[in-house]
Write a protein that binds this DNA or RNA. Structure first.
Length: 814
RNA sequence: GCCGAAGUGGCGGAAUGGCAGACGCGCUACGUUCAGGGCGUAGUGUCCUCACGGGCGUGCGAGUUCAAAUCUCGCCUUCGGCACCA
């Protein structure tokens, strides 16, 4: 048996053993309290990179810790396997997306094993396999049956060169990332989930412990704003048409001197006069073409066109012109605004450019509002030019004007959200087919549950024909109508991959169920997730979708409770040694396989955990690795090399060693619970140093030494699982270290018997005094004033005041 | 522009309002027949001092406090997210 620490020998050995023994298998029958620890599953592309290691090493460490605390831990892993990269590989290199994906998964599993991660592989899910996506389709049908899925026209990015729809991330600077063609917008009929029905509830984060940052980002994304919808009366030549505008400042309605509609607004056609028809049509087309590129730049000059139509401002009774402009978004509010140029900068710029009237409806303490304004001014003084409301102070105005509008019947208080419904259709091959059949006679029909899954056909075509790949496979598209069996056609859009990942945590509870997505017993046993970990890049998409999904499932009676993930921890982003994002083009990539070959998995895991706070990420510099490697070697030496043992339980040396051991337990427990792995390791290093000193001093008490060694191994086990297992075995302890109980701190043993009191004069440290533990304030005072150093600083002056912090500090104020 | 997080040695980073710089890297000196990316001991913010010791120090400027890296206010910078949201 080698006496040296040789990670390359021990790591594969224990990985094999753990796998054979199914050491991390989570049993449904285990009656202990469950703990569901979930790390966001990866998209299997190429290799596990260092960022993956950073995430999963931390999650694995915490899962192992929870096991040692005695929980029945469920720590599953799987693959979010549908998606664009597989399809791109298919297009570029002619490989089958399914083959490409399966090959990558095999590689990922190998690398996860190499890490020593304690996943329960018996529960693995792969979202691109029919036994999983059958249930993604099932969920779609449940949503559809409850009216939460619907079809509507929506803009898609269209690449004229590739003749295909592009995802937003494939559009770079308004151009197709592959062909560099200018991307157009095309309106297609697509499927949506009504996430907006849950907007209000999604803003509440009751009962969950999530980072403030993430909750703020979600609130921001949902974008709740309170205001009113006011009904203007559009004069369309024929009958008057009601035209609702959303505003957060209904109190400025008397200053609304024109209306602006989004170019896509439904009433544009109706209000446009013959004279203006040509200009309006051109502008609408230009907007459609301009799409993202220009609309994204905030400070470009306002553009717009007069429709020729007018509307009656119900407050002032004045007829105001109706314009269209692309700064008004059809997707927000009612897609129409009343413009109040005196008090809104955007409206002001627009009015100035097109010579429209500017009427202030608030006075201002410093600005003469009767003179022409140079810019929009804040509303907040008292109302003017507002008929019966003149003189109303700003703080009461909104409520009073809304009440007035309600009474007169031309408006009501409303809440609007920025959040839009979730577009789940993708015109792609590599996704779960949406289980819908279009029948000419019967319309849109759900595929009967008994016919699920609707499997993806083999041999997809990826030619640029302008049609989605599934549309080109006639044999697949043609399907009988579920009602009468007449020829009908399948829906050829596939589901957004975010849908597959919105419910995967449920599937882990019962992953092989062929009757249901999961049984209600196992759902009750394992759900919800107790601890979720993952990158903050999923703050608003995945993490919002999965909350929506859960709430919808709750309302269907499928799950209990309001939230899917009770605690969330976001690890930070790991950067390259140069502080830049790791990327192949920068050449600053740290390859995990190389690191493992060089140092071993345990060292690499520990180093990743040691570089800084886990939620902070930051630069990863392999040059610091030697510190961790040294420590692991030292730990090895402490546990395997002989110490001169004796029986000396009462000596100061013994007490001191035991104190160090129990302080280490206390610190490690505390740091582990808070995911502070960096300071946790530093505490373990301190313990190693204490052990080293105790042994070097000569004889050590046998009991204290053995305690120190086993505690050191146990506390290290979650982070360096192979090393700990090997040392545990060499100590002759029963397999496995990972099934041992986490050590418990004996507070009495951890207590110092002396304290060092810091003595300050006027807040500056002037002396330190050692006192026995439990010394009274009187003792402390006596000792302080007896100090020569203190007397020198006092110079005979009389203390005005003294502050005593027991056991810590004594401050004399002169 | 709005929302959020963060600014501490040469570097990564520690500090329930109570000793700033734990732990580690790097560096310096000394020791060691160091085969295993050696090991051990001591030192390492800065300025003054042979030294004892002292002054100054946590992005900048105020404030609260006996006491501030930490709390408050104002600014600057960096990073992340959103962005013509009415």
């Amino acid at each position: 048996m080698a006496d040296r620490y040789e990670p390359h020998v021990i790591e594969p050995k224990w990985q094999q053993r753990w796998e054979t023994d199914q050491l991390y298998y989570a049993s449904d029958e285990d009656a202990r309290t469950k703990w569901y620890e979930l790390a966001m599953f990866p998209y299997p592309s190429g290799d596990l990179h260092t960022g993956h290691w950073y995430h999963y090493a931390g999650a694995d460490t915490h899962a192992r810790y929870m096991r040692m605390l005695g929980y029945n831990v469920l720590f599953p892993m799987g693959f979010d396997a549908f998606g664009l990269p597989a399809e791109n590989a298919a297009i570029k290199r002619g490989v089958d997306p399914a083959d490409w994906t399966r090959t990558n998964i095999v590689n990922f599993r190998r690398q996860f094993k190499m890490m020593g991660a304690s996943f329960d592989w018996s529960r693995e899910v792969v979202t691109s396999e029919p036994d999983y996506y059958k249930w993604s389709q099932w969920w779609f049908l449940q949503m559809y049956n409850r009216g939460l899925a619907y079809r509507a026209a929506a803009a898609a990015n269209w690449c004229p060169g590739c003749q295909t729809v592009l995802a937003n991330e494939q559009v770079v600077g308004g151009r197709c990332e592959r062909s560099d063609d200018v991307v157009e917008r095309r309106f297609l009929t697509q499927w949506f989930f009504k996430i907006t029905e849950y907007a209000e509830e999604l803003l509440r984060f009751d009962g969950i412990e999530w980072p403030e940052r993430i909750m703020a980002m979600q609130s921001n994304w949902i974008g709740r704003s309170e205001g009113a919808v006011l009904e203007f009366e559009a004069r369309t030549g024929g009958a008057a048409e009601s035209l609702g505008v959303f505003t957060t400042r209904p109190d400025t309605a008397w200053g609304a001197t024109f209306l602006v509609l989004a170019p896509e607004h439904a009433l544009v056609n109706l209000v446009t006069t013959a004279m203006q028809r040509k200009a309006v049509t051109e502008y609408v087309q230009a907007t459609a073409r301009a799409s993202e590129i220009e609309r994204l730049s905030t400070d470009r000059e306002k553009s717009g066109v007069f429709t020729g139509g007018y509307a009656l401002n119900p407050f002032s009774g004045v007829e105001v012109p109706i314009w269209i402009a692309d700064y008004v978004l059809v997707t927000y509010g009612t897609g129409a605004i009343m413009a109040v140029p005196a008090h809104d900068q955007r409206d002001f710029e627009f009015a100035t450019k097109f010579g429209l009237p500017i009427v202030p409806v608030y006075d201002h303490p410093e600005i003469d509002v009767t003179a022409p304004l140079k810019q929009a001014i804040a509303h907040g003084g008292r109302m003017i030019n507002s008929g019966p409301f003149d003189g109303t102070p700003g703080n009461e105005a909104v409520q009073r004007v809304i009440a007035h509008a309600v009474e007169k019947g031309f408006g009501k208080a409303t809440i609007t959200y920025r959040l839009r419904d979730w577009l789940i259709s993708r015109q792609r091959y590599w996704g779960a087919p949406i289980p819908i059949i279009h029948c000419e006679q019967h319309g849109i029909l759900a595929v009967p549950e008994a016919d699920l899954p609707v499997e993806l056909p083999d041999h997809p075509h990826f030619e640029a024909t302008g049609q989605s790949p599934l549309k080109q496979i006639e044999s697949w598209v043609n399907a009988p109508c579920p009602i009468d069996g007449a020829p009908a056609r399948r829906e050829t859009d596939t589901l957004d991959t975010f849908m597959c990942s919105s419910w995967y945590q449920m599937r882990y509870a019962d992953p092989r169920n062929t009757e249901r997505p999961f049984s209600s017993e196992l759902g009750r046993k394992w759900l919800p997730v107790d601890q979720y970990t993952g990158g903050a890049d999923h703050a608003v998409m995945h993490l919002l979708y999965t909350r929506f999904f859960w709430k919808a499932a709750r309302d269907m009676g499928i799950v209990e409770g309001d939230e899917p993930m009770l605690r969330l921890f976001n690890q930070g982003t790991l950067l390259g040694p140069d502080g830049q994002k790791m990327s192949k083009s920068r050449g600053n990539v740290v390859a995990p396989d190389d690191q493992v070959a060089q140092w071993g998995a345990d060292a690499f895991r520990c180093q990743l955990m040691f570089v800084g706070p886990w939620d902070q990420g930051g630069p990863y510099n392999p040059s610091g690795m030697s510190g961790i490697v040294k420590w692991l070697h030292r730990l090895w030496g402490l546990a395997t090399e002989e110490a001169v043992l004796t029986s000396d339980p009462k000596s100061e040396a013994t007490r001191s060693l035991r104190r160090a051991t129990h302080k280490a337990i206390r610190a490690a427990t505390d740091e582990m619970a808070g995911f502070r792995f960096n300071t946790l390791i530093s505490r373990l290093m301190e313990h190693s140093t204490a052990m080293h000193k105790a042994r070097a001093a000569g004889r050590v008490d046998r009991e204290a030494w053995e305690e120190a060694v086993s505690v050191a191994v146990l506390l290290t086990a979650p982070m360096a699982p192979h090393l700990a297992e090997e040392l545990w075995a060499r100590m002759g302890k029963p397999y496995s270290v990972h099934q041992q109980a986490w050590p418990v701190c004996d507070a009495g043993l951890a207590t110092d018997d002396e304290i060092e009191l810091v003595v300050q004069v006027n807040g500056k440290v002037r002396d330190r005094i050692t006192l026995p533990m439990g010394a009274s304030e009187a003792d402390a005072r006596a000792a302080v004033f007896a100090s020569e150093t203190v007397q020198q600083w006092l110079k005979g002056a009389e203390p005005r005041r003294v502050i005593y912090v027991p056991g810590r500090l004594f401050n004399i104020v002169l």
